[in-house]
């Protein structure tokens, strides 16, 4: 690098043109390619995670401070509503407990195992970075492989399924949200058990594709993960079916309504395919 170079020198133009051409080539390599995180990308993620985490703390505090004003304004109204809900829920809880005893008795008689495959262990994490970009919908978590997180693990918020882990570093993990263009998960209607694929399209309401038994799907159906793909456990709350203006079925995601701050990762182990039988001649 020499001092005193002319600002409009040929070297500047050559270097700029070369750098632009290399960038274009790198972009073209992405077309139709499977997105796999390189070691450098993981290292960048690891470096950025604590920095953004440190920044997001005060920002979330400021957000909470302002949102608490709005909450205080409607506290009285909400309190009355919650009291009436509590009365209804007490009755429901009593019925639920009776039903649970009855179901356990039936299961014992029939000798069936209906245990859910959702792991009881949960890894609490903070979403330090939220990429809600024009093409990408992902989260950056402050937990990683050292905390027990693995690729494919489902990530939940209090509202429902947020997405699944797509890459993991020692202390950070990236989550592909359900609304992302590349997200595809197997879902089912909790009412009819009809299945479909939830396909993200970067909109807040992903569409239902490959709908099985279309007549068994209706607006307002609660959507859960079906577990058919073996990648996610069955029964995770996803959202509610809605019909858009074109008549297509979409899902109003449970996790899309609120800001994602604290989440938990379920260290679920996907069902492994059976080992191929050795063919003996």
């Amino acid at each position: 690098m020499r001092h005193g170079e002319h600002p409009n020198s040929g070297w500047t133009r050559i270097a700029l043109s070369l750098a632009i051409i290399v960038s274009c080539l790198l972009i073209s390599f992405n077309r139709g390619a499977m997105r796999e995180a390189s070691k450098l990308e993981m290292a960048t993620q690891e470096g950025v995670s604590p920095l953004v985490g440190a920044l997001s703390g005060p920002i979330r505090n400021v957000e909470n401070f302002f949102s608490s004003f709005a909450e205080r304004a409607r506290a009285f109204e909400e309190n009355a509503q919650l009291r009436s809900e509590l009365v209804t829920l007490r009755d429901r809880q009593a019925r639920y407990e009776n039903l649970a005893i009855k179901v356990a008795r039936y299961e014992a008689i029939l000798g069936v195992d209906t245990e859910t495959d959702v792991p009881l262990k949960k890894i609490a994490a903070r979403a330090v970075g939220e990429v809600d970009g024009p093409f990408v919908r992902s989260l950056l978590l402050n937990v990683g492989a050292k905390d027990g997180v693995a690729i494919g693990n489902p990530v939940m918020s209090v509202d429902g399924l947020v997405g699944h882990v797509i890459n993991v570093g020692p202390r950070s993990a990236r989550v592909l949200r359900l609304s992302d263009l590349n997200s595809r998960i197997a879902v089912a209607s909790a009412r009819s058990e009809a299945t479909a694929i939830l396909a993200g399209d970067n909109s807040p309401r992903p569409k239902l594709d490959f709908i099985n038994q279309a007549e068994n799907w209706a607006e307002g159906d609660r959507v859960i993960s079906s577990g058919d793909d073996g990648a996610l456990p069955r029964g995770l709350a996803v959202g509610v079916v809605m019909i858009d203006e074109t008549g297509a079925m979409r899902v109003d995601l449970s996790s899309a309504s609120a800001a994602t701050d604290w989440v938990w990762v379920s260290p679920y182990k996907p069902i492994e395919p059976p080992a191929e039988d050795e063919v003996t001649p």
Binding site: M1, P7, S9, A15, S23, I27, R35, Q45, F135, V136
Partner: peptide, 26 residues
């Protein structure tokens, strides 16, 4: 310095792509 600026711009761009999981080179 223009040449150093170009180098920084290129590597900062790649760094952004890695950090935000977007298209490499974008």
């Amino acid at each position: 310095n223009t040449l150093l600026s170009i180098a920084f711009l290129f590597f900062a761009g790649i760094f952004t792509d890695w950090a935000t999981a977007s298209i490499i080179g974008q």
